[in-house]
Structures are given as structure tokens and as C-alpha cells.
Write a protein that binds this DNA or RNA. Structure first.
Lengths: 343, 343
DNA sequence: CTTGATTCCGAAAGCGCTTTCGGAATAGCG
DNA sequence: CGCTATTCCGAAAGCGCTTTCGGAATCAAG
């Protein structure tokens, strides 16, 4: 199988390489006659420009990297595949590549970003789950790499992001619980170096206060992003004197752990203690009982993020690309009126 | 920020570009003295060779693509992230890139592979979940792209693969169920164009026969790879006169659906009807009841697959890289002795 | 028929790196 | 000290494509 390069085509056609290239790339100084000849020949031989050479010549990488969050745990990973799928679709329309890069530690993360930017192999980057102060964001800015973040850090005024308003989602969740008669509402949060964790906690607090309740610190636990951690946090909280009748969790994964903790105490989630998660993971339908959750619109987020990033790479102003979606309550079976409420 | 290229370094050092390059790449015709000078200078200026140029010059892509299976559904996706993570780690040790490419349809898949091979942007490919006859495999072979498949097709003698022996896993599962007293054992399979689906079905059949039972076609259903499909298949089977006391499912996702179906009939999974899944997904711990499953060793499969592919790219013989792992039973709560067994 | 404007294409210079080749400088040997 | 063998580096030719520039050929206008 003869390798079909520009040179090959040019010989075949009796044209100069540059001419063939220009014909293929839509330059206006090529007559329609020869252009169609060239295109026909290219198709006939199934010509695909060597991307590497093209990249080198044009200086544009035609590729985007997704920085995979380190230490993800199996339960929450579906969001990675979803995002990747959407990103891929968005990039595919331009024939761009999607690179997945990872770094295990955060120092390594800096190193990785530095390498990415210098090696010039990507024209843009997307990162997930930013910290409150996120050094990745600062680096990306410093190196002037176009990027978009899936989530927001504290000062998110001057870069592009796509996020779901979890703060008001948690306010809504508290409202919902209060409406069901709950007064002792607990919160299992995530480590607050994650900005999303802080926002969710803020939403919880705001919701409590706006309902005329008092924030009780013994009803607040912080747990890692895993089912086991959620479970441990829930047993702690259940043990505390301020026994909650409902528990809000920062993530579905933790909420699932909480469910287990409640059942382990001989209590019935959804009757004795309500629990509401956040994320809207599909398998929440199958937990025991099915998990009520604040669902975020995951569906096309990947594609949208991709489109936004592309727009920025094309010269768009990053601050024009900030999008805040909202989550909505999906009631399944893990919430209910406070027990004894009907007495 | 001055861009630091080979030219820059060579001027800085008063050496020729080629010399600097050779020094950095460990050629033996460079004196140790100048080599260390060069390295020091490179580090000082944080030089990273432009990958694109390097690729063009050497002709090696230094990148591997993962062909994302189309139409994955959220419930089963954790395996994608896991695989990607492992692959990434493996490639990172050489500083290679991981590309994620996808194709929505199978014609598009062929197109994608063709493009991949011709554009020369990857030196290897990994694909998942092969069909019995998989055109992707044939294409990859035809184009002489090094590849490895995660799973096996029917004729898997002459390429590299990494798979779990689900056939014997299903035989084991049947044995287990028989030991618990079950005689009416149903099977919810996947579409048999997936070779894994065929192998699991074969394992089921072999298990039934080796236990002196008879294969009853009304106890065999085929369902898509989703919880809903699993549920539908299970209600069908439960409706049939040959009422099963246990159901084996080709995937955990389907098994979870089966659990729901059983409960919907007012029966108790694990007591009235046992169900055993396959995959060992983490969230099986949280289903109602927790799902007994044949767990495959997902943990480092990604890294291993990456290492195997790299070895092949380095010139290894593909057939030397075929690895068959085995799954093992993880008992949770969805299996139990046949009801009435103790009477 | 001459001149100036257009249209269309060829030639050539890169993009930043690798790698081969040859030659100067040094070393080893008799 | 002369000669060959080493050691070490510079020069240059690509890798396959893009893009600028200029010029030949064609056209319209005077």
C-alpha cells in the first residue's frame, strides 16, 4: 500500500504540492476546474493530510486536553465518561483530537500543565472540579493556554466556566425538606478545598437560615467523596444528640453511604430519616431506597463545554463564556415527611 | 516569554542544533562534558521539545488511541474511566499521549479507524467489547496498526487481547446456584453479536449441562446492556411457566434491573429468586439487596493493557500478548438457598 | 495592438526537530 | 614524529505540509 502524500497527489495530477494543498484547503486562487480535479483525485486515493505535518506547519495543535481529576473513585466516575463523550463529539466536528491527561498529585499537576503548554501539543484545556484557589487555573492563565473549567473556583470572574448552581440547589433542597416538616436537617459536605463543596455548604446554611432555623454545627459533617466516607459521616451524625430527621449530602455517592448508615441503625431511610443527594446519578434509581437527588443536567454538558472552549480558541473572550445551569429535584424514595409529622 | 526551541538553546550554548538534539537524546557521540552542559541549559530554560516537530521528524506518533465504545450507557461506564486511568498511567511513563476517539455508528467506526491509520497520529489502538466478527479488528489488521483488544472476538488467535474468562465464570456461577439447591436457573444475556455475550451464554449452558440439568429456552432471554432492558427481560422470564428460582445476568447493569423486576412482583430477591450479575461494579454494594456478582479484576487492567500494547509497538509479537484473567464470585445478598429448600 | 488588471499556478521558504555523514581535532601506536 | 583510529561536533538533508511571493498567461480596456 503506497502511502499517499501531497507529493504523491501532486505527481498524479501534474501540479505543484502547494497548489494541491491550496486547492484542498479552499484557497480562492485556485480555479474551480482544477480544484474539483484535485478533490476527486484526493478522494480516489483516500488522501488524509498528515496531521503532524499540518500541525507543525500551521502552528495550531488541533487538539484539546482533558485533565482527568486525580483520585476519582469508581462511584462518581460516570461523569467522566459522559463529559468525554460530549467533548469528543464537539471536537469531532472539526476533526480535532481529544487528549486525556492525568496527574496523580497536585505538584505533578502543575508539572503536567507546564509540559502541556510548552510542548504545544494542545490548543486548549478543560479541567474539572476546581479547588477554591486552584493553581491549575492560575498556571493555565499564566501560560496563556485557552481553557474552560467545569465548575468554578472562588474568583471566577475572568475565565470561562460551565457550572451548575449548587448553592441554590441546596437552598431548594432545604426548603423541600422543611416543607415536609423537617427541622433537624443535617449536612454531609465534601472537603471545602473543593469550591463546589463550599458552595453547597453555603446553600445549605442559607436555606436553613431563610427558613428561620438555626445552623447547628453538630449537624454538619465533612467527608471525602466516597460512599464509605459518607457512611461514616452519617453514623457520626446519627450518634450525635441533635439527631437529624433529614440529611443532605453534597454528592450522591456520599448519600448512598448515608443510606447504608441509616439502615444499619435499624432506621428506615425516607421514613425515619430522609436523605437527599446531589448529582442525579442514574444508579440512584436502584439504591435502597431509591435516592432522591438534586439532578444536574449532565446530558449535553460535555458538548457544550467543548463548543465553548472552541469558541475561545477561535479568539472569543473567555468571560463571554460563563454558563450557570440549575439542578432540579428528582424525587425518588429517600425523602418523606418527618416521621410523626402526621400525629 | 521567549519561546525556547532547539535553535534558542543552540545559540545560548554556541553549539549546532543537531548537537544539542543528540546530546539531549543520549547519543553516544557527544562528550559527557558537553552533554551535561546542554542538559543543564535545557533545564534552566525549561526546554521541552516540540512534540509535533519531533513526531514529524521521527515518524513515530508517540500516542495511542482508545476507541470509545459507542452507545455506552451511564450505568456501565465506570469501566471506561478505569481503563483510561490505567492506560494513561502506562503511557505516561514514556510521555506518550492518550487520545480518546469515538464513533457513533459502526460504519463511522470503520471510517474512524481508516482516518486514524492514515493520518498517522497514533502508533497503536485499543478497542473494547469486540463483536463476534469485528470489522474494527480486521481493519486494524489490514492497516497494520498495532492494537490490542479488551475482550476477544471469535477468532482471537492472531492478535493481542486481554480478557476475563467469563465462560468459566458463568459455569462457576451455575455451580454455585446448584449448590444452593436451585434447579430452575434463568439467564439474561446480551445481544450475541457481542462475543462476550456468546461466551457467557455458553458458560451458562455448559454449567447447566454439567450439573445434569436441562437447558430450557424459556429460561433464556436476551436484553440490551441497560438496567431497563434487564428489568423487562426479567419480568418476561418471571411470567413464563418455567418460573426460575434464580437468574444469572450477563452484566451487573442488567442484574440490577432484574432485582427491580423481582421486587415489583412482590418477591424478594435473594430469597424467593436469587440473582447473580457479572462485572463486580462497585455500586452493587448499594442495590436492594446488594448484588452478588462475578467480579472481574478491573483494578489494573488498564495499565496492563497499556503495557502490552507498548510492547507490541516496540516490535513484540502480538500473539505473545494474550492474557486471560478469571473472575471470582463476590457474594453479597442477592443469592441464597432456594426458598423452601430447608423445608 | 498596447497596456494594465486579473486569474491561476509554480517555486521556495519555512515549521522545529532528528539523523546521517563527513571532517577536524585529538588520541593511540609503532 | 608520522600514521591510523577515535572522539566529538557541524552541516545539511529531510519529515509532509502550509503559505507567501512572484510571474506567466489570460483577459478587459483604451
Amino acid at each position: 500500500m503506497q502511502k499517499v502524500s501531497l507529493k504523491f497527489l501532486s505527481k498524479e495530477l501534474g501540479l505543484a504540492e502547494g497548489t494541491v494543498s491550496r486547492a484542498l484547503n479552499g484557497y480562492s486562487d485556485i480555479s474551480e476546474a482544477t480544484r474539483s480535479r484535485v478533490i476527486a483525485c484526493a478522494e480516489k486515493h483516500n488522501y488524509k493530510a498528515n496531521q503532524t505535518a499540518r500541525r507543525l506547519a500551521t502552528g495550531v495543535a488541533e487538539a484539546v486536553a482533558y485533565l482527568m481529576p486525580a483520585n476519582t473513585n469508581a462511584l462518581s466516575e460516570p461523569f467522566v465518561s459522559q463529559l468525554l463523550e460530549g467533548l469528543g463529539q464537539s471536537l469531532a466536528r472539526r476533526n480535532w483530537d481529544l487528549l486525556v491527561v492525568q496527574a496523580s498529585s497536585s505538584e505533578e499537576e502543575a508539572e503536567t500543565i507546564a509540559k502541556l503548554s510548552r510542548s504545544g501539543k494542545v490548543s486548549g484545556v478543560v479541567i474539572s472540579r476546581p479547588y477554591k484557589q486552584d493553581s491549575r487555573i492560575e498556571l493555565l492563565r499564566k501560560y496563556k493556554v485557552p481553557f474552560i473549567v467545569h465548575g468554578r473556583s472562588v474568583s471566577h470572574a475572568d475565565y470561562a466556566w460551565y457550572d451548575v448552581d449548587s448553592e441554590s440547589a441546596f437552598m431548594d433542597a432545604v426548603d423541600h425538606l422543611v416543607m415536609l416538616g423537617h427541622r433537624q436537617i443535617g449536612f454531609i459536605g465534601a472537603p471545602t478545598y473543593y469550591h463546589f463543596a463550599q458552595m453547597r455548604l453555603d446553600g445549605y446554611r442559607a436555606g436553613i437560615l431563610s427558613n428561620g432555623l438555626k445552623v447547628n454545627d453538630s449537624l454538619i459533617e465533612v467527608a471525602e467523596l466516597s460512599d464509605d466516607a459518607g457512611e461514616r459521616a452519617a453514623v457520626n451524625m446519627l450518634k450525635s444528640p441533635a439527631s437529624p430527621t433529614a440529611i443532605l449530602c453534597a454528592t450522591d455517592t456520599q448519600a448512598i453511604g448515608a443510606l447504608a448508615a441509616i439502615r444499619a441503625q435499624g432506621l428506615e431511610p425516607g421514613k425515619d430519616v430522609s436523605v437527599i443527594g446531589y448529582d442525579g446519578l442514574a444508579f440512584g434509581k436502584h439504591t435502597n431506597p431509591p435516592l432522591t437527588t438534586m439532578a444536574q443536567p449532565l446530558a449535553h454538558s460535555g458538548r457544550q463545554i467543548g463548543d465553548m472552549l472552541l469558541a475561545i480558541i477561535d479568539g472569543g473572550n473567555p468571560t463571554d463564556y460563563q454558563e450557570l445551569r440549575s439542578a432540579k429535584l428528582v424525587r425518588r424514595m429517600s425523602d418523606g415527611p418527618i416521621s410523626g409529622h402526621t400525629e
